[in-house]
Design a protein around this nucleic acid. Sequence first.
DNA 1: TTGAAAGCGCTAACAA
DNA 2: TTGTTAGCGCTTTCAA
Lengths: 339, 339
Amino acid sequence: MRTERHSKHGAPVTMRDIAKEAGVSVATVSHVVNNKQGARIGEETRQRVHEAIDLLGYRTNALAKTLSVGSSRFIGLVADAIATTPFAGQIIHGAQDEAWKHGYVLLVANIDGNKAAENDAIAMMLEHQVRGILYSTWYHREIEVPESLHQTDTVLVDCFSTGSGLPAVVPDEEQGGKAATQELIDAGHQRIAFINTTTPSPALTGRLAGYRSALESSGLEFDASLVISAVPEQEGGYEVTSAIIASGASAVFCHNDRVAMGLYDGLRVRGLDVPKDIAVVGFDNQEVIAAHLRPPLTTVALPHYEIGAAGIRVLLGLEREQDNALYLINCPAIKRQSV
Amino acid sequence: MRTERHSKHGAPVTMRDIAKEAGVSVATVSHVVNNKQGARIGEETRQRVHEAIDLLGYRTNALAKTLSVGSSRFIGLVADAIATTPFAGQIIHGAQDEAWKHGYVLLVANIDGNKAAENDAIAMMLEHQVRGILYSTWYHREIEVPESLHQTDTVLVDCFSTGSGLPAVVPDEEQGGKAATQELIDAGHQRIAFINTTTPSPALTGRLAGYRSALESSGLEFDASLVISAVPEQEGGYEVTSAIIASGASAVFCHNDRVAMGLYDGLRVRGLDVPKDIAVVGFDNQEVIAAHLRPPLTTVALPHYEIGAAGIRVLLGLEREQDNALYLINCPAIKRQSV
DNA sequence: TTGAAAGCGCTAACAA
DNA sequence: TTGTTAGCGCTTTCAA
């Protein structure tokens, strides 16, 4: 039976209390609590200490411990748009799990493009003696690194900054683009259109490169007229429907799931069936959309969870070092029924 | 020009270093750093201290401060599904901003229905001497509170637990349901169907109550045959399309945006136009969907950001106390073009 | 096998 | 106006 003397408020019970209760020194308590190797504690003493702990409801003070031991178990994670999509959430989740696994705790800060908030957040993390910082964005892009980040170990997550020298963990856009296209090729399509984004980004160039690479590997000729640009949203996909049809393609690789969603609409309005008349694959694997469209959308996953987790590993020096400091994470195809 | 002696590694510069450099005592440094009221420091001394700080690149150690001052600036936030939807992210964002405003930092832990992880997370927070804990779920429901939460101040966020005595911040489902229905009534509709969820939940009963209440306020009769149940997903909305049409309704209030999305599909397949043939309103204001459907969906927002922020305020005792410990947050209508 | 004591970086009386 | 001192809760030599 526990007493939990410290309950909600009132002075928390400390090691000293335990020592007194058990009739030993704090050093001894510390030793049994941490199961120290060096010091051998008598079985009987150990018992008494544990009993006192149970009785009084002791819980170690992580902050005091950190101060004493000199290094904290915090890792900071600054995210740029936690509330917009589930993507940032997945990064956090992955980082969280991996950090946890190694005994670290995440200090999360959201900053919506607000430079002042960003600096405050980083300062806060530094003041908390974080082991390092993960700087993440919710979509893959090049960024300019805040000066203060150089005061600790930092790894860029889902973003990069050439010349900063900071390690970066990003999705392998080219491999992803290739995987998407390959799905279509494997289903026998020869004339495959690609709706690319209009926004300059690693996704724009990377996925295009992947598309071409897949075509090439299969001996299919690249036809520039088959790549059509569209705003990377539902509206964009809807608007290029006619162009897609006019292109004579039997399949289309969409820059993302939202574009695919718009295209579905456009196709449906014209009485066309997916995948019978036209096969489509998306990119992102955005659950609400991809899994619930009719028919469910075959797509390529942006592995945000993995990216977050890998970020932690890189920070902790657990990942095999890449000489270019660029860690590419695989984007796997998710097969559903649109091909 | 700064030297940043502590740079990435190597012993960080402490108050003692500053004191030595400025030729004063640490107490003095502490006073100028914290801008203490009581102690008046000579302008010249203050200068010297600031210069030393700039020169050496000093940054306060928040952990040591906490230990000394006795109370930490941490607030724990345990979330149950941070990666699934943007909802959890919005809660975190709101909590984050509000906590920040009051000088607190968020310790975030994600636990996917994993009871063990949950206990670990709470223990971790307690060990870090959190000021309190926000326990949140990503959709409004009744939960069973983990025992350990009673060891600190906690507030339930987007969930509740009758009998636990814990304050809870939740969306006002009834008011939201009423707002949604009212949109339709205001547009002149008299025969309004309601696609409700099949999942027992505060949303099921609350939104229905709101629907009836709106009808009643406008002198419209409630017709049980107009409320149709469906799985709260795209598929559910699609499947009840025929039933909706058969009901003769000129407008429909969908349990959520996903259902509305499915209904849109069903309607389109049948050649029906929204809103000309049938007006529809959703619920949730799930950005990817609601804002990008054609036509954009009028809906009611689930104010997750506000809920997170209010949670912090309740925890810190900044919100006017509710006698039932239930804090209802308003769900505003978001007008777009489906009505 | 156990304990005493110093120290982590900072704050807060209280003196000077 | 500034410095001295005693902690905060814990770890860690070093002695006993």
